[in-house]
Nucleic acid binder design. Structure first.
Lengths: 244, 244
DNA sequence: TGCAGAAATTGGTTGGACCATTGGACCACT
DNA sequence: AGTGGTCCAATGGTCCAACCAATTTCTGCA
């Protein structure tokens, strides 16, 4: 390890400075996700700050999912870090399950429609071929397993986000997707959940292939609408209680 | 062997327990956002844990934006807390080149339009009055200072997000806003940046007051379009270089 | 009454100590 | 060679007792 890649800290706002220094260290050492960071004691010594200060800084990173600490083992990088990265803690007040799920869908509706439109504008021929491939895989899985093609379904959507040319779409919608599915262990008793959305995957693709942004937007909105309907049906059936 | 039949056991989780207790305290005392929490020393004593442990827990909450600490003053609640809260920390690698700024605007375009439409659907009379108040303040500031009403402008928009009934709009757009303005001290040499967007604030408000969702959506899109134009003009003038 | 300065309060930092868990080294036995 | 047991050093987790720095509150003088 290069001794000079961890210079002492100087100013106040210690823990922020610690994180900044740590970003520099990770880049200097070209640490990849999964690799181990220096121990807290070493960091404290090198940065000339107390170990508690190092711990406060690492606690923040742990809360952001950038790092994982294992007692007795060490602290491990979980994601790529870069200077200037922006942290966006999304908090969903879980007062009411149905409301929370619906809120993630409202965000998805807006972003999904925009992403589909941008995708239709910007897709190259190879992009379109890639999306077609994902669509085939998804439809195949849907037919053989009769629904429940959630994994392949998600891959199809992700392909669209990527082709949109804006990585923010994939990251934010992925966060909505995860929030949605964290509530989702029990499919609310709706057996055919997602069936209604199936045909719109192909219509979205056709609009993209035809370079029709507004058509793609419209079809994406229809798709989200079917999911919202499924959700409402499930809520009505189970009478989801608002839990404290 | 079934992997799931032997889940990892959990031994110690002090700071989690502290946060759980704190949620209970906030509810028991019916603390509202803005109010002050007990001091770290008192919490440590009451919960029979070290002050360090209390601090680690509060650091996590601070990272999630639930709480704000002011040295010498105290720790204040920043948002409502509930036992079922769901957190999804999202970190974006932000650049300051033209492409990155444009990408934040693509997200904002989608969300701003949706939020305006939902706001027009759901606004109560008092909501509309509140938005009107923010609009007046913003227009006043714009006229007296001849532009540069960014602070009051932002408050107006935030009011719309809140009335939309979905806190995710405010959280996500706020992140886009910060990403956009982080490198924004000098308006790219465009002196009248933001002037073109001014009239649309009032047209958006009028659509909301008239309960016209599609109109509000259209006006919001026009507003974002003016910002995109300003950005393109600035980029053309300064030839923003893409830097890491 | 007004206001500058002292005092109390509160979060931020430090250093040192001990505990709990981990993972590897080493060993005895089969 | 392989299995299990024991030990030990390393590492994160917790605790304590101070002190520092910013803020708020109180006090007493003008």
């Amino acid at each position: 390890m290069d001794q000079n890649s961890l210079p002492p800290i100087q100013t106040t706002a210690r823990d922020d400075a610690v994180l900044k220094a740590l970003v520099g260290f990770v880049r200097a050492e070209a640490l990849q996700p999964g690799e181990r960071l220096p121990t807290e004691r070493i960091l404290a010594e090198r940065l000339k700050v107390s170990r508690n200060t190092v711990r406060e800084a690492l606690t923040r990173w742990e809360g952001l999912g950038l790092v994982e600490r294992r007692q007795g083992s060490g602290t491990y990088l979980k994601a790529a870090v870069s200077p200037g990265m922006l942290h966006m803690p999304l908090t969903l007040a879980g007062g009411n399950d149905f409301t929370s799920l619906m809120q993630t869908l409202e965000i998805r509706r807006a972003l999904e429609a925009e992403a589909a439109a941008l995708c239709a504008e910007r897709a190259s021929q190879t992009d379109i071929a890639e999306i077609a491939r994902k669509l085939d895989i998804m439809e195949q899985a849907f037919r053989t397993r009769d629904g429940m093609s959630s994994e392949e379904d998600w891959e199809f959507h992700q392909a669209i986000y990527r082709v949109s040319g804006n990585p923010l779409f994939e990251q934010i919608i992925a966060a909505m997707h995860e929030l949605f599915h964290r509530f989702w262990e029990h499919p609310l008793g709706v057996r055919d959940f997602g069936h209604a959305s199936f045909p719109y995957h192909r219509t979205i693709y056709e609009c993209i292939a035809a370079r029709d942004p507004e058509g793609a937007r419209a079809e994406a909105l229809k798709l989200i609408a079917t999911v919202e309907d499924d959700l409402k049906r499930g809520a009505a059936k189970l009478k989801l209680s608002s839990q404290t």
